[in-house]
Design a protein around this nucleic acid. Structure first.
Lengths: 218, 218
DNA sequence: AGGCAATCTTGTCATTGTCAAGTTGCGCGG
DNA sequence: CCGCGCAACTTGACAATGACAAGATTGCCT
């Protein structure tokens, strides 16, 4: 039951491929002018994959289905991402990059946690893939550097925690914050907190949790 | 009778519930036995699946491979578990049952968290499947009841938190504890804490984190 | 203009999940 | 004691998928 006809991301849009007339839009983005070679298929497949993953999870992803959605042949994705693992690795790397920039703007550790949760909610597909190691190519350079970037951003945020937070070991404070945020985000995405959180804003709920963790004398 | 030690997931342990078909071959003798109908294939496939999942993750699971490992034909698993989702659902249900009994023996909320982490480490395959909703049959009765059981056990543990834990809302304290434990366990299993935790005992590390959360005046 | 390399297509193969019959052997009612 | 039914498995088939190998097409560079 695949359904999900083309349309949406791909070109389609009624243009036969021989349309040599319109080659404008060198910067792929507009909905109409795909310069034959699809403009940039790589992006199209990535976004199609993100859509699919957000719905069915990374396991249900089908390269052929993505190709169909993008309106290209079944082997086209393999040219950009070598195989399934390659595609997912690219997604994970992109996710770590996005997360790194999101964390970098955080004022303190609590705010970093809030941004972590927000990231998971705004990019659920990225988030899921990022933490599914058995689906990724472990050694990939782009992935490891992006992950290191995000890791640095988190580490930097940890330094902002007030030292009188009796955790003593700053590293453990970081692990605590990461665990709390990651667990909350994961449970949220897997709909395990629908009851407790209810209709409250998840980020506000998390703020309360974070305050429980980093309760200073104040 | 099901309250045997939790570590016994080995092979051919007592069945969990129904399956009243086995009466003659109740005793597991047979070194070469293979009472033709394989004894109990259901258990064999479950344990084979747990092994495979622990190595390759739930996504890489192949029913045909499990059948091969069990020495049966490729369609044999389908008779016990209707399909892939059925098998994984059975695993998840079993996992929630195990988790429920593990949590029930906890003295307080912190200890419940420790047991949560221990469960994840001792039953990584169960744990991964339990929180991969898109792989499960959502409406399954056995699953939902087992999940409710575990949820009750956790809720009960929450009541043991000292009320002066300034979280005020007991529900939020539960969410905090769950998030912390779940995040720690998840990051642990995905090898994201190999650095920070190092060679220390993860449960001890988690104890420190839990103390950061539920710091009372003391 | 001509060639080259990137991009995409077509074709193919092994593997897998799932369904639809068959087959085997145990136990139960007669 | 016996055959009959039923549960546990087997055999066979089919569509879908991932991956690979060549071939076709086009933009670009010189």
């Amino acid at each position: 039951m695949s359904s999900s006809k083309a349309s949406g991301i791909g070109r389609a849009s009624g243009a036969d491929k021989a349309s040599g007339a319109d080659k404008a839009s060198a910067n792929g983005k507009s909905t109409t002018g795909r310069p034959y070679h699809h403009g940039d298929l790589r992006r199209a497949i990535l976004t199609a994959a993100l859509d699919a993953i957000a719905v069915d999870g990374p396991s249900g992803l089908s390269l052929r289905d993505l190709a169909r959605r993008a309106g290209v042949s079944h082997a086209a994705p393999a040219h950009h991402f070598k195989d399934r693992a390659g595609l997912l690795t690219a997604i994970a790397a992109e996710g770590f990059g996005l997360l790194a920039t999101a964390l970098r703007e955080a004022a303190d550790l609590k705010e970093a946690g809030v941004r972590y949760v927000r990231f998971a909610r705004e990019h659920p597909a990225h988030f899921q893939v990022m933490f599914a190691p058995e689906l990724l190519r472990a050694g990939d350079l782009e992935l490891t550097t992006a992950r290191a970037l995000a890791s640095d951003a988190l580490r930097e945020a940890v330094t902002t925690v007030p030292p009188e937070g009796r955790g003593a070991d700053a590293r453990l404070a970081g692990v605590a914050a990461w665990s709390l945020a990651h667990g909350f985000a994961t449970l949220l995405l897997s709909h395990n907190l629908d009851g407790p959180v209810g209709d409250r804003d998840p980020e506000e709920v998390f703020r309360v949790l974070a305050e429980m963790l980093f309760r200073r004398g104040e």
